[in-house]
Design a protein around this nucleic acid. Sequence first.
DNA 1: TAGATATTGACAGTGACTATCACTTAAGAG
DNA 2: CTCTTAAGTGATAGTCACTGTCAATATCTA
Lengths: 207, 207
Amino acid sequence: MTHMAASARSTPSDHAGLGLRERKKLKTRVAIRDATYRLIAEQGYDATTVEQIAEAAEVSPSTVFRYFPTKEDIVLTDEYDPVLESELRSRPADEPIIESMKHVITKALKLGFDEDAEMTRLRTRLQVEVPAVRSRMMESMSVTGQLLCRVLAERTDRDPADLEVRVYSMALVGALMETTLYWAEHGHQDDLSDLMTRTLDTFANGL
Amino acid sequence: MTHMAASARSTPSDHAGLGLRERKKLKTRVAIRDATYRLIAEQGYDATTVEQIAEAAEVSPSTVFRYFPTKEDIVLTDEYDPVLESELRSRPADEPIIESMKHVITKALKLGFDEDAEMTRLRTRLQVEVPAVRSRMMESMSVTGQLLCRVLAERTDRDPADLEVRVYSMALVGALMETTLYWAEHGHQDDLSDLMTRTLDTFANGL
DNA sequence: TAGATATTGACAGTGACTATCACTTAAGAG
DNA sequence: CTCTTAAGTGATAGTCACTGTCAATATCTA
C-alpha cells in the first residue's frame, strides 16, 4: 500500500505491553523515520545522506541499515497491507470487488489520512519527484498485487497464481498507484477519495 | 516497451549512411551491450561489475556511463516504443483499443522476437530474478504508459492528462508487464502471444 | 547473579555513479 | 588540403549507498 496515500508514522498496533527490547526497537525505528522526514523536508532527498540521518537519530549508520534495507524504504515502508487485506476480507464475499475496494479505500483514507496529512503529502511528493523513491514504490506494487491476488482468488474460487487473477490484480494496483501520482502531481488539490472513485469506475467500465 | 518481450540487439534502423562518428557510436553501444549480456550470462548480474563490462567492451568505465545512465539500462534499454506508437496509430481509429493492442503485440512478437529469442529470455529472466532490473523495468512502464495516454487520448478525443486516460493506460501497461513476468517465471514455456491474448481479454471483460 | 542471546557501533571494505580536465579525432569552412 | 571547432574519450579523484565482521554492551532467562 505504499503507493497509496495511507500514512504510517505511528504503527497500527503501537507499543503495548512489549518487553523493553521491543519497545526500544520501536523507538529507534520511529526516531530514524522522524529524523529522515525532518532532514528531507529541510534539505531535500538527495542532499540528505544516511550518515546525517544516523546522526540526527543518534544511532550509527549500521543501525539505520539494520532497520531499513534501503534509504528509500525509510520513506516508504508502511504496515498497512495486512490491514487492507483483512478489511477486504471483511466485506461480503459476493460484493463486486470494485465495490469492496471503494468502501475499503474510502474508509482507509478517512481514518489513516487525516491523522498525518503532512507526512502523506511529503511522501507522495517524493514519489513524484525522486526517481529512486518512485522506483521503490513501484516495487512495492507487486507486494500489494500479490495480496490482491489472494483475496481475488478466494472470492472467485481460482488459483492465486492464475494468469487472469494476476493480471487483473496488477492492473488494479497500477491504476490506484497512478491515481496517487496524479493527485500528488496536481499539488494534492483534489479530494483523493473522489479520484479513487473515478479510477475504480474507469477500471470497471473501461474508458 | 522494455517490460514486454521485444528484443533489441540490432537497433531498428541500423547503420545506414550515417557519418563515421555516428557509426562508431553505434558500434560502441552494441559492444557494451553484447559484452554485458555475455558477462551476465557467464557470471550473473551482481557479480558483473561495470569495470568488467568496460574492459570486455574495450572502453573506459566513464564511457559506459556516457552511453547508459545506469547498469540496469544496459540490459533494459530498447528503442521500440516509437515503433509501437506508430503501429498503434496505423490501426483504424474506430477499432477498439484492445483489438488494436492484440494485433500490434502479436505482430511485434512475430517479428522482433524470433530474431533473438536468447537475449529476450535472458532479459526477462533478469527482470524476475534481479530486483534492481525489475525495478528499472517498472520505471520504464510509465514511459510506455505516457505513450499509450497519447494514443488513447487521440482516439477518444480527450486530454492525455485526464485521470481516466492515465488510469486506463497504466492499468493496461501493468497488465502487460505482469504477463511478461508470468511468462518468465514459468520458464518461457507458454506461447507469449497466447498469454497476451488472454491478458487483453481479461482486461476488457473483467475477471 | 551467571550465562545465553539480542542489539549495537566501529571499522574496513565494494561498487555504482559523478565531475573535471586534458587529449584525441571527426566534421565543416575556406 | 588545412585549419578551426566541437564531439567523444580516458584518467583521476571523488561521494555515497550498502555489506560484512567483530568486539562491546544491554536485555532476558534460569
